[in-house]
Amino acid sequence: MSVAPAPATRPIEFRNATLDSTIAVLRVADAPALADALHKMLGGMPDFFNGEATVLDFAELADPPQRIDWPGLLSLLKRFRLQPIGVRNLTPPLAETARQAGLALLDAAELSEPPPESARPAPAVAEAEAPPTPAPAAARVEPAPAQVDTLFVDRPLRSGQQVYARGGDIVLLAGMSNGAEVIADGSIHCYGPLRGRAIAGAQGNASARIVTTNFGPEIVSIAGVYKTFEQGIAESLAGKAAHVRMVMNGTEQKLGIESLALD
């Protein structure tokens, strides 16, 4: 008598999953030019990435090449600790060579709404070749407000770690370190030091804010508008409770940072 194996004992089983991935928007496909750009962008943090699954998006390719040196491109990205898994927005002949190089062909529809690349400082590649156009935040259509849970992070967010609150707010209950990155489509609330990169309104929501009890970030961004602190943070704000929001400066949007009185 033989019994069909119970599902749990099958040697392989397939399940559906939504993949958390980084999207690298390539404006050139030439490995040496990308190597330069990546080196410039991540010079201070060669291990900014941590083996993240990465989709290569060619929608903004300036000048589509005849062929792409896949082995060269893949080994370059791996050197920067990115793990390319698939491509999208390639012409059919190039897509076919990508498939032969072992990459999956993905459509925008197969990826659940990632934060737009214009709101992400790091993965948008090829700055050296074609400076990225300013974030078209104002032109972006606001996604329909779905009810999304707030994402709570109970432990400190450490260097090299990254979290993304899709569609909503994030609350960091134990602060974050330099070299960490927090991204939210809504606002960022940080109890404890805010020390890494804080990207709010990642889908273009300009009314998102960044609020913290201890201000000390490397970079803040709301709806694609950035502020870095190369010259250090003003003493009136450093280590203090503060919030960041978008303000209008004439017709220009900029980020305003104000201290908060906590009691």
Partner: peptide, 24 residues
Amino acid sequence: VRDSDRILGILQSKSRRAAEGREP
């Protein structure tokens, strides 16, 4: 200190205790 910060993050994501959702 930066390296230690990184390893602390890895500790809390890659350890068995983390993987099994036990006490960190």
